[in-house]
């Protein structure tokens, strides 16, 4: 009785899981619309209309990178943080764990969904920046920016996962917002970090969003000049910590 899935069955399982997750999220306008529209709207206001000439004309390019980071964090934090809290409290996660679903499918589908949202947001930002902001990058710079942003969802998926497993469904949206919005501001996603007082710039080193923003800006050499290795190491370390905390929380809820 130790039959196992064929490759095609496994592929079907993972693609159905991902498809369901994506449909589930996109059909919730209260979630999908703000997370797609806000980063773009903010970028249009602050990057294209008000500050166009700031930072010696580089504002549209700079804010394209930082609003990209802002845009991809939202779906990752919400899809993990809020949805997992809800599915846990509704017993849906328990039912899935009782089924033969591989638990990896549950997480992979959520990561891929967050990445799809990241892709949509990034492509829309790129288009706005190129068409209305005269942002001109080389092909490899565009590609590199996209890659950093897509992989950049991972630390926030693990942070969201940890929060989602800890929080009650009703508290989750508020807590996630309380974390998301101040972190975005303090990491220099809305206003360039260069304008911040020194101590705030230093404090930003504690925030994962800051390191991701610096990595993204590094592609265009607009970062504040730390080595990319520091940012990558910080992100990797934070991902590992969140993952360890999440694993502990997961074992606690599934085995009491």
């Amino acid at each position: 009785m130790s039959q196992s899935f064929t490759f095609n069955q496994r592929l079907r399982l993972f693609s159905l899981e991902t498809q369901s997750e994506f449909l589930k999220v996109i059909r919730m306008p209260a979630f999908a619309l703000p997370s797609l529209a806000f980063p773009l709207m903010f970028y249009v206001f602050f990057g294209l209309i008000f500050n166009r000439g700031g930072m010696s004309g580089q504002m549209p390019a700079y804010l394209m990178a930082t609003y990209g980071v802002f845009g991809i964090i939202g779906p990752a934090l919400f899809s993990f943080g809020v949805n997992i809290a809800v599915e846990k409290d509704h017993g849906w996660l328990a039912l899935k764990q009782a089924s033969p679903m591989p638990i990896s499918a549950y997480f992979v589908s959520k990561i891929l969904t967050a990445m799809m949202f990241a892709l949509i947001i990034t492509m829309a930002l790129f288009s706005l920046a190129a068409i209305f902001g005269d942002v001109r990058l080389s092909r490899s710079e565009w590609a590199m920016t996209l890659l950093v942003l897509l992989l950049g969802v991972l630390p926030f998926c693990t942070l969201g996962l940890w929060l989602g497993l800890q929080l009650k469904a009703q508290a989750a949206p508020a807590v996630v917002n309380l974390l998301y919005l101040p972190m975005a501001f303090l990491s220099g996603l809305w206003i360039p970090i260069d304008y911040f007082p020194d101590f705030l710039q230093k404090a930003a080193n504690l925030l994962p969003a800051f390191h991701l923003a610096q990595l993204t800006l590094k592609v265009q050499s607009l970062d504040i000049g730390q080595s990319w290795m520091i940012h990558l190491a910080a992100l990797a370390a934070m991902t590992a910590i969140f993952l360890a905390l999440a694993t502990r929380a997961f074992h606690r809820i599934s085995n009491n």
Binding site: Q3, L16, E17, S20, K24, R27, E87, W92
Partner: peptide, 21 residues
């Protein structure tokens, strides 16, 4: 238990069916 509201009966069943041999 409550399941995700925004999926249809067909989508829910097809997904769960894919977990079994």
């Amino acid at each position: 238990t409550k399941m995700p509201n925004t999926l249809t009966i067909k989508e829910h069943i097809e997904l769960f069916s894919s977990y079994y041999l």
